[in-house]
Amino acid sequence: MMRFSLAFLALAAHGVNAMLRFSCSELVIDRLDPLVTPGENPSPHLHQIVGGNAFNITMDPSLDLPSLATCTSCTFSEDLSNYWTAVLYFRARDGTLTRVPQMGNQFLEQATGGMTVYYIQPYDGTQVTAFQPSFRMLVGDPMKRTFDDSLESRQLSFRCFEENFGGEAGAPGTGQDTRELPNRPCPGGIRSNIFFPTCWDGVNVDSPDHKSHVAFPTSGSFETGGPCPASHPIKIPQLFYETVWDTREFNDQSQWPEDGSQPFVFSMGDPTGYGQHGDYVFGWKGDALQRAMDANCNVVCPQIQSQDTSVANQCTIPRRVDEAIDEGELQDTSFLKVAYC
């Protein structure tokens, strides 16, 4: 019988009516950000990117991604969107840096790294409006180093995976999620969780800060049917990223900092985890996403086309920034661009 992650079970417990859950394998790891710093090569920090192979240094909103992309690293083949997050590094006691690889999530283990993507609907069956062509948004702040208990900060967390769930690496295990990077070895790796806003102003597909055109419910939560603010009355799907970082090879605490602090740092120079963030550029074909939402698809969705994970794994693009990012243990930290805080 199929078992799902704790995130899945928690959503089910909240009465989520329906959702898509699928893997998007690693498309490329590169220092580009066409949403926040379009045209900059390189961008301020490194990202891990998944989705359609139309991802580029600049992605003008007028571009039709489904017509430009020839493949996608996601298992729903009508999804040519792009999704990206920062990259995690291990900082050893001697100061060297080693990139932490991603691994396939539970029951999606065949994926080559990347992340798990969810599109979720409210528990009460309220229909949502799918994202429109050229839609894009950002959640999180790469410069944040403290928890301010804002609505946005509450959408970002981590889980320290144990190996006590059938002995499977990457299994959810026990314990509570943390807002900051876990401060102890995680036998099954570390999962980062990123939830996006669920209310839209109904007019703008983007905004200068890539945030103002969307909002969170005014009370409660999206899963429990929380109301949208009057300024953003349209309910959109709950977009949710899970990235599982394979930290298992870095659990030898004799290699951790001598002061006992946790050894991981994100590529924007963040050792806290409070700066984790996610970017999204919509690229579904036609009305495919709306069809899935209208059909109340629950993980499996025959209303839209899918492809085998082995095919999705083959969709990659070359890096455009020529720099060492994971070739052995790096002493040069200049590629992080932002100093440790």
Rank of each mutant, 00 (worst) to 15 (best):
C341H: 14
W245H: 09
D201K: 12
L289C: 00
P182D: 15
Y89Q: 03
D326E: 13
D124P: 03
E329H: 15
V28K: 06
A324D: 13
S157E: 14
H232Y: 07
C74F: 01
V300F: 09
T112L: 10
P38N: 04
S150D: 04
L181G: 14
R191M: 14
N164G: 15
G283D: 00
F165Q: 12
N105A: 08
G113C: 02
F131I: 07
G220P: 08
C315H: 07
L88D: 00
G269I: 04
P34R: 06
A12P: 02
L289F: 00
P271M: 02
D332Y: 12
G125H: 09
V100G: 02
D124I: 11
S77H: 01
A215I: 10
E258G: 13
E163Q: 13
P185N: 15
F8V: 11
C228W: 11
S81D: 01
I194D: 07
M103G: 08
G273I: 02
G226N: 10
A111E: 05
G175V: 06
A13N: 08
H210R: 14
P227T: 09
D206R: 13
L108P: 03
P197S: 10
V338K: 10
V300Y: 08
P271G: 00
F250W: 00
R159Y: 12
S306Q: 09
Q303F: 08
W245D: 01
A169D: 13
G226Q: 08
N298P: 01
D308E: 13
D270W: 07
P101R: 05
T316I: 11
L289T: 01
Q121F: 12
F250N: 03
N41D: 07
P257W: 02
L9V: 07
N193G: 15
S153A: 14
D149E: 15
T72W: 02
P185R: 11
E162F: 14
G113R: 07
L68W: 05
A12F: 07
R31I: 02
L11Q: 09
P237C: 11
A92Q: 01
C186V: 07
M268A: 09
Y123K: 11
G260E: 04
P187S: 09
N193H: 13
P101C: 03
E152V: 15
N204P: 05
T112K: 14
G202N: 11
L108C: 03
